[in-house]
Simulated scan of single mutants.
Amino acid sequence: MWTEEIVTGRPAWRHIPSGVVFREVPGGTFRMGLSEAELDAVRAIERSGGVEDTIEPFLASARNAQPVREVRVEPFLLARHPLTVAQVRHWLPEYEDDYAEADTGTARLEGDLEDLLKLLPFQLPSEAQWEYAARAGTTTLTFRGDGKPDEDQLLDDFGDEARTAAGENAFGLAALGSANELCADVWAPGFDGAPSDALPRTGDGPRTVRGGAADLYPWQGCDEWLLLSATRYEHANFTAVRPAAPLPPQ
């Protein structure tokens, strides 16, 4: 079912039936949520003239990513990038995508989403796993630092192996934040009462979504900086899927 190999110089696990490449995310503890230091970094970008509109919507929505809390994450596998159109067709052969320009592009699912989730032999990451993976040991706005992210950081197609490799973070994961990615958690505003063990919050209602910068390009204002590691919102329409899985037995 799984094979170990080296992908762009890093260890990886390939799911043999589908060909989807996963990276092993090491366990650890991190501070989850939008910190005051990160908010100060956004204000600094505004002061430097790097905001087209206003940061007030961003600041108002910050409470949905607070309070910052410590979360323990156990090791797990996460797909190197969101599922592409070609990869979705492994499970849904008739799948058509209105958003991707090539089969190597990120698949954004609408009506086919639940069908895919029923067929996937994987799980969705919890949003704690997602943010931990996106931060990759950093505490800044993005894994690249506190500067304003720009369109050069967006990665929406994985046909160019060199560009995909250049977009990887320290965990060997690419494009975290570029597409809106579905998480296992049911949406809840803020982190009050959220688990500290990285398990997803369960219940009825829409799921939580992370990322989505490429879906809002060109950005209109600071509130749309969805590449940020802590940005989160309620699922409403199309979404990408980046599957997670337990570590294969040794």
Rank of each mutant, 00 (worst) to 15 (best):
T3N: 13
I6M: 11
V7R: 09
G9C: 04
P11H: 02
P11Y: 00
A12M: 00
A12R: 07
W13G: 01
I16V: 15
P17D: 08
G19K: 00
V21F: 01
E24S: 05
P26M: 01
P26V: 01
L34H: 09
S35V: 12
E36S: 09
E36F: 05
L39V: 05
L39S: 01
D40F: 01
A41V: 02
A41T: 02
R47L: 05
G50R: 06
D53A: 15
E56F: 07
F58K: 07
F58T: 06
A62I: 06
A62Q: 08
N64Q: 11
A65Q: 05
Q66G: 04
P67Q: 02
V68D: 03
V68R: 07
R69Q: 13
E70M: 13
V71Q: 07
R72A: 13
E74Y: 07
L77D: 02
L78D: 01
A79C: 04
R80F: 07
H81K: 11
T84F: 00
T84Y: 00
Q87C: 09
Q87N: 04
V88A: 09
V88I: 12
V88S: 11
R89T: 06
W91S: 12
W91C: 14
Y95P: 11
Y95D: 12
Y99N: 10
G105P: 07
T106Q: 02
E110P: 00
L113R: 12
L113K: 08
D115N: 15
F122W: 15
L124W: 13
L124M: 11
P125F: 08
P125N: 07
S126E: 03
E131N: 10
E131T: 07
E131R: 07
A133V: 03
T140W: 10
F143E: 13
R144C: 03
R144S: 05
D146G: 03
G147P: 01
G147T: 10
G147H: 14
K148Q: 14
D152K: 15
D152E: 14
L154E: 14
D160C: 08
A162P: 04
T164M: 12
A166C: 05
N169K: 06
F171G: 00
A175C: 13
A175L: 07
L176G: 04
S178F: 04
N180S: 15
C183A: 08
C183S: 13
A188T: 15
P189E: 14
D192I: 10
G193S: 01
P195K: 09
S196W: 08
S196I: 11
A198M: 05
P200A: 07
P200L: 12
R201H: 10
R201G: 13
D204F: 05
D204V: 11
P206N: 10
T208F: 06
V209N: 02
G211D: 02
G212D: 03
A213V: 06
A213K: 00
A214H: 15
D215W: 12
L216N: 11
Y217H: 14
P218Q: 10
C222P: 06
W225T: 09
W225Y: 10
T231F: 12
R232C: 09
E234R: 15
E234C: 15
E234H: 05
E234D: 11
E234G: 05
F238W: 13
T239N: 03
A240I: 08
P243L: 08
A244Q: 05
P246Y: 04
P246E: 11
P246D: 12
P248D: 06
P249A: 13
